[in-house]
Computed example of a mutant assay.
Amino acid sequence: MRYPGGKAALAGFFGDVIDRLAMSDAVYVEPYAGGVGAGLSLLRQDRIQELVINDIDPAVHSFWRSVTQQPDEFIHRVISTPLDVDEWRHQKAIYREADETDVMALGFAFFYLNRTNRSGILNAGPIGGMNQTGNYKIDARFNRDQLAEPIVNIELSRGRGKGRIR
């Protein structure tokens, strides 16, 4: 995720605190999820046994719920969803509607806009502009394989007993 104010750089500090306190079976609770960089790093390093992801923003929460509970469907959308302005408009409408009853649709719309909007800003327009006349196009930050890989890695980590995500 492209997310301003991410806490990934704090993973080392949090890990050191966990070690100094000799905590076993540590649970890391992330109330402001965003990219969950610190929590995912701690989980991959086996420094925590459980990662609890939450966010007050329904779109962010829906994204993480979709990625952790339906990774195959999410990856399918990453691989198959068109990268053009018509699809961008469709995803923008889903995001604006903010229908929390369709967690996958809202979570994916959030992700799609984060990757296709200028600077990842959800209220910005698409990279390259509506007419796609800019130096970069809407797909500039949407490398499908690179975006699917972290989702696969999260699921694989869970399968190797590297802790639980909820």
Rank of each mutant, 00 (worst) to 15 (best):
M1L: 13
P4T: 09
G6K: 02
A8H: 09
L10S: 09
L10T: 00
A11C: 06
F13K: 08
F14P: 05
R20V: 14
S24L: 05
E30C: 03
P31T: 01
G35V: 01
G35E: 07
S41Q: 12
L43P: 00
R47C: 04
A59N: 01
V60E: 00
S62T: 02
V67K: 04
T68V: 14
E73W: 08
E73P: 00
F74L: 06
R77A: 14
V78R: 00
D84L: 14
D86N: 11
D86W: 09
A93K: 12
Y95G: 04
D99M: 07
V103G: 04
A105P: 03
A105F: 03
G107W: 04
A109C: 13
A109E: 11
F110I: 06
F111L: 03
Y112D: 03
L113C: 05
N114E: 04
I121S: 00
I121G: 00
L122F: 05
N123V: 08
N123M: 12
P126N: 07
G128P: 07
M130Q: 14
N131S: 11
T133Y: 04
Y136F: 06
K137H: 10
A140I: 08
A140R: 11
R141H: 11
R144T: 09
R144L: 10
Q146E: 12
Q146R: 13
L147N: 06
L147H: 05
L147E: 13
I151Y: 10
I151M: 11
V152I: 11
V152Y: 15
N153G: 13
E155G: 08
R158C: 08
G159A: 15
G161H: 09
K162D: 15
K162V: 06
R164D: 10
R164H: 14
R164C: 11
